[in-house]
Amino acid sequence: MSNFTLNVNGTSSTVDVTDDTPLLWVLRDTLGLVGTKYGCGIGECGACTVHLDGVAAKSCGVTVKDATAAKITTIEGLAPGGKLTVLQQAWCHLDVPQCGYCQSGQIMCATALLAKKPKPTDEEIDYALSANICRCATYTRIRAAIHAAATVA
């Protein structure tokens, strides 16, 4: 067990956890930020996607130690002051979620994509979100919501 200081959603927190703990479990179990989901633990499903310095990363594969150097953003920190981003609004309006479990990871990936490519093509969307599984296969609406957000933004 060691102390680690993390900057999550603009807030600095010191946690006392086993050294090899993945960021995913620090977020969920220690900090109570359960919007980041456990799906596979091996970086295959994308449900645990967060931003490290604005870049999408799978938090199940990042140790707490490696995460101390970055500014971490989770799904809970995406909407500044509680005002939904354009992408989050599109997601709600187009009713993308079915079970909803993968959606925070999808949104984190899509947010990172739009930051880099404000008007992505279908191919660019498919590539950027290729690491994210939606078991309910809401893919038709995921594409539509990203395009809708790109049009408005």
Binding site: L33, V34, T74, I75, E76, L78, W91, V96
Partner: peptide, 23 residues
């Protein structure tokens, strides 16, 4: 009519909803 899911806003902001989110 088309009515968006009642939990959509909680889902897109990562609020606790699922069994695995229990604390």
């Amino acid at each position: 009519t088309r009515v968006p899911g009642v939990d959509n806003e909680k889902i897109v902001t990562g609020q606790p909803l699922y069994g695995i989110d229990q604390r």
